[in-house]
Write a protein that binds this DNA or RNA. Structure first.
Lengths: 336, 336
DNA sequence: TGGCGATGTTGAATCGATTCAAAGAAGAAC
DNA sequence: GTTCTTCTTTGAATCGATTCAACATCGCCA
């Protein structure tokens, strides 16, 4: 019934608690005979280490805290999976929190992780949390920002060049001969969104005959995309854009749903060419397979954890900044 | 730099550690003046409770461990979200683990949760883990099975009636006049898959003119669905089924991709009607919007946590078993 | 035989929050 | 002034794994 402790194991094996602990943590320091006896005692008693006690003593937990903007977005689950696999290699776990683009929730998770004295934090930030992260750092908890390039900031980051991504997307749309472009995304407070838009603007800047309308939405979700799409459908045909760059694939899927809806009858790519961002699995399975800007999601997560591990080893090293390049994936939604 | 403890707070506030602890946990037992002084000291020192120490003393953590078959399946993220929201109401957190339909990973997570002395476990089981769960229970850690009806088992469960779901799906396909049905799903070791198939078989049983072919796949993923779809496309047209019931929406999306692929040219629902299971958001955004069997995913998660909380209060109560009824959602893939 | 190094083992001290029996303070009642 | 209540506060003991200085043992060589 009651859990057994190292003391019970020691008693049973006829050794001291120190030896039991050594068997668990530094078996090379213990004689084979003792290891054997302790192992048997552990098995017989069904002893399981108490993590809380280990943590208390060690001062830090074996868990990495991760916060993402939206767990329902496959991009982030892929990211988390990459992080988890890398962490597992060092015997660490990942706790995944979902901020839902809500500063309140984001802060709550960071507080929680601080209470838990997590090993480190990997976060796709929404609000400006420099202050909180600084406090964590003072406590000895390093943080790595993901999906956000902040080459000047005090914290390490792993990101994809969203400016380049935005440029890629819009240049592709222009290469199709489209001239009345629109960007659908938001909230603009999200750095990634702002960067993608900025990249788009830069690409358009050198083409005086091309216009770029910005349609701001309040979340990067299928629902928000669908609502924006319904608005566009409601316009007279000549006021609609002839190509849309959506801030991510969920939004572009929502747009597509609105366009394909009975009675809407906006053809993609005929009337409107459509490109998204992230290249999630579902993008290729949409009504019209969606073009997208691919990010190496799992690799981003993996890299973030690698950096985190390095920072725990060497807390005073200057921040690392890794930037991956995105890749254009062309499918039916921008073809023909 | 170094974190401050209750001792530091007590010193600064000029009270004893007991009083500080009482302010944190039972403020009603402390005089307003003392509460005020302690609060100020906490703020000034930036004191943050050490969870490991609390846990060690309390014997159990404030985290619920959850294991699902596939985090990339929106059904499970919805489930997790429902659980998380309910848990938050009681000041609890949820750690989400992903077994990937892998008994090894599943076991690893359960071990980890046992080490962590989690508050309770919510699991969508893959392998037979009765033994492990029993051990957890002896340790005082209750478990609730989700997405699996086991009315006779020793553990509480929250599920959807998959037999009924299978029946619903197949009856719908038959009502369209289809006669050469196929079930695509697997591995059969997954109870939910087996139940859905059994429901399908039961529905077919009373229709001697209807056949049900079983196409077993090795994972419930888009990829596995696509592979199965390619096989079907490779058959001569008169050997193909005229309706398919897929074990979940990911599989049906994979099938659909294969059918819609250039050169495949299998029309849905013209040549093959297609219905999935779970009714994930993406199902309605597919090439052909997919019919499905809807499960109240968030509600399942929420209910599981409710039961868990009750079991911690009252460990000796007999297991609870909740079964929700699924719902048929008809879309273009089985229309016309 | 004594001395030295190498190798293994010991167990008290430690991490930090919580608990609870005991002591203290303030007030009420006689 | 004394006794009883009631309300607060105190601080040592506790949870369980880990650490590390001190101790024991053994073999080896001078």
């Amino acid at each position: 019934m009651s859990a057994s402790s190292v003391r019970d194991v020691a008693l049973r094996a006829g050794v001291s608690v120190g030896t039991v602990s050594n068997v668990l943590n530094h078996p090379e320091k213990v004689s084979p005979a003792a290891v054997e006896r302790v192992q048997r005692a552990i098995d017989e008693l069904g002893f399981i280490r108490n993590d809380a006690a280990r943590q208390l003593r060690n001062g830090r937990s074996r868990t990495i805290g991760m916060v993402v903007l939206d767990v329902r977005n496959p991009f982030f689950t892929d990211l988390a999976r990459g992080a988890e696999d890398e962490a597992a290699g060092s015997g660490l776990t990942v706790t995944l929190g979902n901020s839902d683009e809500n500063p309140q929730r984001e802060a709550t998770y960071l507080d929680l992780f601080e209470q838990q004295r997590v090993y480190g934090v990997v976060i796709s930030a929404y609000a400006d949390i420099t202050e909180r992260l600084t406090r964590l750092k003072q406590r000895g908890i390093p943080a790595v920002l993901v999906d956000r390039s902040s080459p000047d900031g005090p914290f390490s980051s792993v990101a994809v060049d969203d400016l380049a991504g935005g440029r890629l997307a819009v240049e592709h749309l222009m290469s199709l001969g489209r001239r009345r472009l629109a960007f659908v995304g938001g909230p603009m407070g999200i750095r990634q969104v702002a960067d993608r838009l900025e990249g788009a603007r830069a690409a358009v800047a050198s083409h005086p005959d091309v216009s770029l309308e910005v349609i701001e939405i309040d979340a990067l979700s299928v629902l928000a995309g669908r609502a924006a799409g319904a608005d566009i459908v409601g316009r007279s045909p000549d006021e609609r854009p002839d190509a849309i760059f959506a801030a991510n694939d969920l939004v572009s899927m929502g747009l597509l749903q609105a366009f394909a809806m009975q009675g809407a009858g906006v053809s993609v790519p005929g009337q409107i060419a459509l490109i998204g961002y992230d290249d999630i699995d579902f993008a290729s399975a949409a009504v019209v397979p969606l073009s997208s800007i691919r990010q190496p999601s799992a690799l981003i997560g993996k890299t973030a954890v690698e950096i985190l591990l390095a920072e725990v080893e060497n807390p005073d090293a200057p921040p690392h900044h890794v930037v991956f390049q995105p890749e254009l994936v062309i499918r039916a939604s921008t073809r023909g």
